[in-house]
Design a protein around this nucleic acid. Structure first.
Lengths: 143, 143
DNA sequence: TAATTATGCTTTTAAATAACAAGCATATTG
DNA sequence: CAATATGCTTGTTATTTAAAAGCATAATTA
């Protein structure tokens, strides 16, 4: 086992990231928040993945506990809550976009719009920042 | 639920990526392959995460089935096998690096070397390509 | 205002998965 | 030729996940 100098990571970043990324449902919830405008509990339920209510509830609680999302009462609807990404959550955008880029490259059935992939490859950071500020604006407007 | 034009993805890239990323053990195996020079079954077993042999065997088979890794007989040792990343597997490097970058930013206990994070942020693609070509060279040399 | 529906869960139970331990075939080493 | 290394497989038990149903509060409709 060859040793790289960068190998001796005990506060291992992949293990840290795996707490979020290493979970199917968390990834899909993040997708819905980032790219599908999901804000309410029902949005995740109706995203078409067939997530059970208990699974969704535990995942939302976990993401909240990790500081990835925040849960706010919906001012326009008493019993409802609005789920939004924190800065830490928005920070996951570049990684999500890389996953999308990879899938676009290797999945023959991909339905990533080619112009989206092109825009990403032309300037990754610019696209991430654009999406991020769009999301921040949207989160502010209807809060 | 606001609709983005980029939202209607049925060949969903996040779901596609989640087949690999959405699994804790796959992420750790990829880490070992990419950053710790792991090549043999025993390297993964001894990586310190306490993975069981049955879990490791199923994950290696899955990664192979997905075309992420290849399994070759070790020419220098009859019963042994060498596991290496395919081009598709190496393509996951940028996403892995983004996860590392995110963890470095948000994990107060991170042990990512600061100079590694700096180098990444200075030129993400350059670092990914450097690591990728280093890995390809290493995979060629002792095959 | 009373009944109905919406919302965001919790609880129960069944099924799937993971962890642990042991075993095992082939290969190499002493 | 006996002992050890290697890469698994096969049980068995424990844990996690998923599906289904239920439930309290809030809003809507009649």
């Amino acid at each position: 086992m060859t040793k790289r100098t960068t190998a001796n990571w005990n506060g291992c970043p992949i293990r840290y990231g795996a707490a979020i990324f290493g979970d199917n449902w968390c990834l899909l919830i993040l997708r819905d928040l980032m790219f599908k405008g999901a804000r309410h509990y029902a949005d995740f339920i109706n995203a078409g993945e067939g997530i059970s209510t208990n699974i969704l509830a535990t995942r939302l609680a976990k993401l909240q506990a990790e500081g990835i999302i925040e849960k706010h009462p919906d001012p326009s609807h008493g019993k409802r809550y609005i789920y939004i990404l924190t800065d830490k959550g928005l920070g996951l955008l570049p990684a999500m976009l890389e996953i999308i880029d990879w899938s676009e490259t290797w999945d023959s059935e991909t339905e990533v719009p080619p112009e989206f992939a092109d825009e990403f490859r032309r300037d990754r950071l610019a696209l991430a920042q654009k999406i991020s500020s769009d999301l921040k604006a949207a989160q502010r407007i209807d809060d």
